[in-house]
């Protein structure tokens, strides 16, 4: 067919392109600005006018960040909770989804209902706090990974995917004498790799970004707080112009709380920025299964 472009069409294309460029600028500018500030001399930044490029280049801000013991401990805890939490959560959700997606399972609908209810009803902050406290999970690393291992939403995404795997695979394995454990580990799981990657990504991002549980349950144990929580403390100290002792120390090093915070922000988002473009296709699949198919 011959392409015939009307004037209105051309105007649309131009406006749309402008909109997209505008969108990209709005999205990227704040991030790049923080990067520039983190690489710029702290005192110089106060003068204003630092946009996308550092004016007085320095690595002092990063140097200060890597000397802060609480940030280093926070990073260690954050990495640990992300690895352990993602593994446990994925394993448990996958097992549950496997059970629920077995057609012959005796309590299939009851077990689904039990978990779907948790999507809509929960005890709320205070009762949950009381239970965790009663179980001895406060002031402990395990509070990050043990509660909330199962997410009904993630489980349903996994279940939907597993339901799409032909039954004949399971049946022929059973004829060969394979039990459910073998079917789960050797037949279903290898086929579920893409959706496992999706769920692992969701959980890992959630774990890496968590700070509230750290504040609520572990604020007394400085060795157990997460990087995000330490970053938050840094942010509020900037807003309140921080204690004088800290300020004096910073002045000696020619850094300001604002520029140190910018450096810490960049360090915190670095793992995510490096990883997410490669994982794109996985989360697109996951969201589509979870949202549209249901």
């Amino acid at each position: 067919m011959k392409k015939k472009k009307s004037a209105a069409d051309k105007i649309f294309v131009v406006c749309n392109t402008i909109f997209m460029v505008f969108f990209v600028v709005i999205t990227l500018y704040p991030v790049l600005n923080t990067l520039a500030i983190s690489l710029n001399d702290g005192i110089d930044t106060i003068r204003g006018g630092v946009h996308l490029w550092p004016r007085k280049f320095t690595l002092k801000n990063y140097h200060t960040v890597f000397q802060k013991q609480n940030l280093l401990t926070g990073a260690y805890i954050s990495v640990l909770r992300t690895i352990v939490g993602t593994f446990l959560s994925l394993a448990l959700n996958a097992i549950l989804a496997f059970i629920i997606s077995r057609k012959k399972f005796l309590f299939k609908s009851q077990l689904s209902l039990f978990w779907v209810i948790t999507m809509y009803v929960n005890g709320g902050l205070i009762p949950t706090f009381m239970v965790y406290n009663g179980l001895g999970l406060t002031n402990s690393f395990w509070v990050y990974v043990i509660p909330g291992m199962i997410s009904a939403f993630n489980m349903l995404v996994l279940r939907t995917y597993m339901q799409g795997i032909p039954d004949s695979l399971e049946e022929s394995a059973q004829l060969d004498g394979a039990g459910y454990t073998v079917i789960f580990l050797k037949i279903i799981s290898p086929l579920c790799k893409p959706v496992y990657a999706t769920i692992a990504l969701f959980v890992a991002v959630y774990q890496w970004n968590s700070w509230f549980d750290s504040m609520l349950y572990n604020r007394m144990s400085t060795k157990l707080t997460t990087l995000q929580y330490e970053l938050m403390k840094l942010l509020s100290s900037v807003m309140q112009q921080s204690g004088s002792a800290e300020a004096a120390k910073n002045a000696a090093a020619a850094v300001t709380p604002a520029s140190v915070r910018a450096a810490a922000t960049i360090v915190t988002m670095l793992p995510i920025i490096c990883l997410y473009p490669f994982l794109q296709r996985y989360f697109v699949t996951g969201l589509t299964i979870g949202g549209v198919k249901e």
């Binding site: 600005n33 923080t34 970053l231 915070r261 915190t268």
Partner: peptide, 13 residues
């Protein structure tokens, strides 16, 4: 993918 901590920090800047 950025936490609210980071987003609010950026907003402040």
């Amino acid at each position: 993918f950025l936490s609210w901590i980071i987003v609010t920090g950026i907003l402040h800047d």
